[in-house]
Nucleic acid binder design. Sequence first.
DNA 1: TTGAAAGCGCTAACAT
DNA 2: ATGTTAGCGCTTTCAA
Lengths: 340, 340
Amino acid sequence: MATTIREVAKRAGVSTAAVSYVLNDRKGAVKISDETRARIWKAVKELGYHPNALARSLAGKRTHTVALVMQYASIFSSWSGFTSEMMHGVVRAAFDHDVDLLLHTRERPDTNAEALVLADGRVDGALLLRDWEDPLIDLLVDQGIPTTLIYSRSRNPSVPSSCCDDELGGRMATEHLVSLGHRRIMHLAGSRRSSAAVDRLKGFESILREHGIEPNPDWIHVVPHSGVLLDRTMEALCGDPRPTAVFAWSDDVALRLMAEARGAGLRIPEDLSVVGFDSTEVCNHTSPTLTSVSQNIPLVAAEGVRMLAERIRDNKGEGARFTVTPELHVRGSTGPAPRR
Amino acid sequence: MATTIREVAKRAGVSTAAVSYVLNDRKGAVKISDETRARIWKAVKELGYHPNALARSLAGKRTHTVALVMQYASIFSSWSGFTSEMMHGVVRAAFDHDVDLLLHTRERPDTNAEALVLADGRVDGALLLRDWEDPLIDLLVDQGIPTTLIYSRSRNPSVPSSCCDDELGGRMATEHLVSLGHRRIMHLAGSRRSSAAVDRLKGFESILREHGIEPNPDWIHVVPHSGVLLDRTMEALCGDPRPTAVFAWSDDVALRLMAEARGAGLRIPEDLSVVGFDSTEVCNHTSPTLTSVSQNIPLVAAEGVRMLAERIRDNKGEGARFTVTPELHVRGSTGPAPRR
DNA sequence: TTGAAAGCGCTAACAT
DNA sequence: ATGTTAGCGCTTTCAA
């Protein structure tokens, strides 16, 4: 059994309260003489004492821990590097803000179970990477648990969020393709419940319309978040007329597409141009390299953590927003539209 | 403030103990009549009560949480997918074994600080992805904190570990190259403090010797875990005589090598064959695709979590070992040795 | 400047 | 079968 504050107090010949004061350095509030303070520190060192976090949290009502909650565990199966970069950003920012991370992620969302865990006192707040209308968000807000969304807009205006301007990103990707002469452009979209995916689609459609091109609904496919592409996607790519370019909502999807398209005998970019999203490192290592819209992934994560930490600390910052501006990184997977 | 067990007890007209018994379903130990039990559940539902995890852990001496501790945060910068697959395995296994994960990872190791955090009562045990002789391991063992290593052997025989047979993996990679006629083979190794890296190197050297080839120390480079390769690596690759093949200790390094080699005008595999390690999904998407030794990454993680959970639950399983057998996945980056 | 003592919310031994 | 109560280890008022 670890040493307790009582043993320290006894050894230093003071009360547990005095030890607590010294350890927490309650400036101003109470005064402990230098002499007593030294005696206490001596006892602490000698006993190798360090406080029990559980007891401290229970008594002090603060855990210095935030939960990181993903939509589903298989987000870790996206191998493009997005998840890793996000984790790196979150981990680093958590350290900077002196909070620990409780990872509570399931294969499939289970709103009630998750809300219970997050409301059982173990965390001061939650960092959510979830659908923007996820009921979990409201559940947490109702329970008064500070919550921040990352890589997503927030529907509830009181919930802070940190994300990329995804609509602008969608516009950039599409504008690039149009400027290369493409007119028949396909979009591989993410879940209808992801604000990032929806916004990128919006950007895609609005640029097309601005150029007088009506988006073809048969060429807008919502693709599964892992595994192979839909059969009808491949059919559309090989049909007649067929798209000469594809904007995929993520690098992951873009790379899966490139692999399958190549398998179907399409040359990239001669027959088909491809643009991805996130511009993760892997884009530099594929063949051809992948043109992609970049967002500063670690920054978005870090800002999310910062907002959450501040909200917990100061109990303010409701409805704060952070938005990063995307950039287009042109690489080898995009080229002029083929002449007919 | 959330409802407490006392309010539930009052509402049900029973003691807090009765509520605790019913909630924890202490079979056998104590008997609560069905009628009382029903009354208690009714009160629980009506009040929307759920127990405070902190108080429960403090009183019950069990947190149902384990720490996941990496060597450094930038392991998340390895974009090859190893980290993601590992995280997926860990997260899924943690859910299966009903433990939560506390992520406590810093930019750089800080043994004492980390030991403190892990010993402050918040976790029941620790899952470590660390150097195999890391002092943190002993520190934790000394404090009686159940600890398990993943992706690493363990020096301390009492510490369970889950890993791949890395020496065999190194042998497989090298044997493949030798069988293709390569004699001048380079190895890009990982940290000398990683048992995985050291074992792969061992396998590399032993196969060479078995074929009567003395490993050339000038062609064994320890490469940094991120960023570009060493200048002397590129010099060696372009020297005369130069290696005709490279075995890189990780896919990450292999891919960095391929990029730089191509930049230096070397064709792969005509001029240079390359083998990586882990056979992550990205190996299928590079140009050429990357021959690599595969280990079942999620399985290693899952077994690590299982061992740890069992050790915590039953207080046995000291020194358990799990080893997965690697497999060679031949892809496009390896070919016959060039004739001189 | 310091100490006593009442919680924080729960579990579990002991009484009844 | 159920209630009483003493902790778990710490923080924090209140009194001295």
